[in-house]
Design a binder for these strands. Sequence first.
DNA 1: TATTGTTATACTCTATAACTATA
DNA 2: TATAGTTATAGAGTATAACAATA
Lengths: 157, 157
Amino acid sequence: MSTTRKTNSLVDFPSGNVLDRSLEDLVGYNVKRSNILFQSGVRKVLEGHGLNPRSFAALCQVVAHPGISQSDVARVLGIERSGLVAIIDSLQENNCLERTTVQDDRRVQALKPTQEGIETAKRAMVDVNAKENQIMENLTSDEQITLLSLLQKLRDA
Amino acid sequence: MSTTRKTNSLVDFPSGNVLDRSLEDLVGYNVKRSNILFQSGVRKVLEGHGLNPRSFAALCQVVAHPGISQSDVARVLGIERSGLVAIIDSLQENNCLERTTVQDDRRVQALKPTQEGIETAKRAMVDVNAKENQIMENLTSDEQITLLSLLQKLRDA
DNA sequence: TATTGTTATACTCTATAACTATA
DNA sequence: TATAGTTATAGAGTATAACAATA
């Protein structure tokens, strides 16, 4: 007797099926499904701070590197400059940062975090960390650390 | 002297900055960036087989579970039924599967893989596996296995 | 009432191209 | 000629709602 799923299905879902396991054993597929878990969970948390995943990431960069240019934020985050405009607009509307002019190069607008922006980033980061711990609750602390370091090593390529 | 990036930046990027590391130390952020690496790499490979990530995943399910319904494929893949229609349409146009009627329940259309569909799935899987190994080339074999098992354990929650 | 497949719709995310002003 | 910021635009991905046929 094979182990079947609870829904009323046309076919059995025997555990250990070769081709089924092939998909479930792809790292990329598991990364994609895991990304959905984190994305949806973290998005909900960030909404409470008037942020979304991208604006949160951008704000973190501005807070960490006051005076950074939009182009540099885009480079660090791996997104297009054009897509960053609306994100910076929203952060500016929320009084999280200011666009300031630069004497040496009048093309760029240095991004300076406001005190409110700094505090928003810190509060959001606390909540995001808590949410991540909740999402990973069935991993031990060591396993969480291992997962993080392996993903970072992967990205270093 | 701090370590700076190569681009002409307004600000320094000292390694070890607290708030910058906070973002880079979020598991969710690393999952998101890793997902982009896999997604773009695998997508290119699948194009050579007339597939994309979603149609490949759906085809794998149909090959692994001949006779599966569209609703079940959607449930297993974690996507909406409505979004699956176009995917199944494209797989049917490529002669990878057939929609067949079911006597017991005339609402459902059991999905049966064609011989061409089975072979396409197998060939694509070989290439995807090779691509994943390339993407993870700076991880040892043990590390790749650990990463996979941790992601699977995370998703079991 | 609930489910399957389907269509229509809209919304988010994101990339591309082109423009301007500066360098 | 190259870069910064910006705008417009289009495409992919995906969720929602509603519908007809069937259970």
